[in-house]
Design a protein around this nucleic acid. Structure first.
Length: 309
DNA sequence: AAGCTGAACAACCGCAGGGCA
DNA sequence: ATGCCCTGCGGTTGTTCAGCT
């Protein structure tokens, strides 16, 4: 199927955006909202490609963009997320409020990519390494921090995103209902429920006879906490967390630890749990091997994290 | 002071996937 | 079922600037 060009190239501005263009775009979006990028330039009176407008808005003009240097915590988080997700910058950015995928990608390419150099990673699988390949003479950088520990095994722990791209977990309608009621049982009060992060709520509420990404499941530590289905109720363990990382009795959820460096345990999936999980109907047979690969990766990750602390 | 080099980051490009007619 | 539109994503390139020689 043919694709129409993204926009007519003639007569369009390219390159750096001017302050006036920024203002026009911002004003237009304030009034009309985001979306319909293709028509936006024409309606707003901008001589720009719709894609360009979208990019400019998302990466620079959006009011919730966090400016300034990446903090050490953010950096650690990026590294950890990259280990799990590979170059899925949008997913990584989704876990870093105020940061854009482009910013994180750039930061990785210019800073973190160097740090993890020597460790096989998804980026090393790319045909080209724009920045890493040309640092003949390394200049000290203000943003640079001490090198990261390397894996004791020296093997790749990065999930190859291409291979896992279509890895989905399918739930039957009944399983969806059960999952939601488990959630409601674990999170007793309305206030507690509303305190759960919005992305988790989306995961649960949007769960129709559908699917959710395994990677999202992994990343939603809160979700994994509520996914502990015990065997006594006869349903078997369908969920994802076997570590006993349930919500504590005080009703405190671990939202503050959401994927923080200190919340490693939420991300670790023992072999046994995976067996239960993959043995269940909710996982398509053809992705079991992917999940097992991921489990072995996580085991390696566990060791590494253990030696790190 | 001028030229060179690399870092940082903004912007572009092509592709993929979902939605819809 | 097919094809088009729209959007999002990741890879790559271009530009600017600071530090070094």
């Amino acid at each position: 199927m043919g694709r129409s060009p993204c926009c007519a190239k003639e007569g369009l501005n390219r390159g750096a955006w001017t302050a006036l263009e920024d203002k026009i775009l911002t004003d237009y979006i304030k009034i009309h909202g985001e979306g319909k990028w293709r028509n936006l330039p024409k309606k707003a009176g901008l001589k720009r490609c719709g894609k360009s407008c979208r990019l400019r808005w998302l990466n620079y003009l959006r009011p919730d963009i966090k400016r300034g240097n990446i903090t050490h915590d953010e950096e650690e988080l990026i590294i950890r997320l990259h280990k799990l997700l590979g170059n899925r910058w949008s997913l990584i950015a989704g876990r870093l409020p105020g940061r854009t995928d482009n910013e994180i990608k750039n930061y990785w390419n210019t800073n973190l990519g160097k740090k993890v150099q020597g460790q096989p990673s998804i980026t090393s699988l790319s045909p080209k390494q724009p920045c890493n390949s040309k640092d003949k003479k390394k200049k000290p950088s203000m943003k640079e921090s001490p090198p990261l520990p390397t894996s004791p095994k020296g093997e790749s722990r990065v999930v190859r995103t291409k291979a896992l791209r279509c890895t989905k977990v399918f739930l039957t309608p009944q399983q969806v209902t059960e999952t939601q009621s488990q959630f409601n049982n674990h999170v007793g009060s309305e206030e507690e429920r509303s305190s759960i992060s919005s992305d988790l709520m989306m995961d649960l509420n949007d769960l129709n006879v559908g699917e959710f990404c395994f990677s999202d499941l992994l990343l939603d530590s809160e979700f994994s906490q509520f996914c502990h289905f015990d065997d006594e109720n006869g349903k078997g363990r369908e969920g994802c967390n076997d570590n006993g990382n349930q919500k504590n009795n005080n009703g405190e959820n671990s939202k503050k630890d959401h994927f923080s460096p200190s919340s490693d345990e939420h991300l670790l999936y023992p072999e046994e749990m995976l067996e239960n999980w993959t043995g269940n109907n909710c996982v398509q047979p053809d992705i079991v091997s992917d999940l097992k690969s991921l489990a072995s990766f996580l085991d390696a990750d566990d060791e590494w994290l253990g030696s790190e602390q």
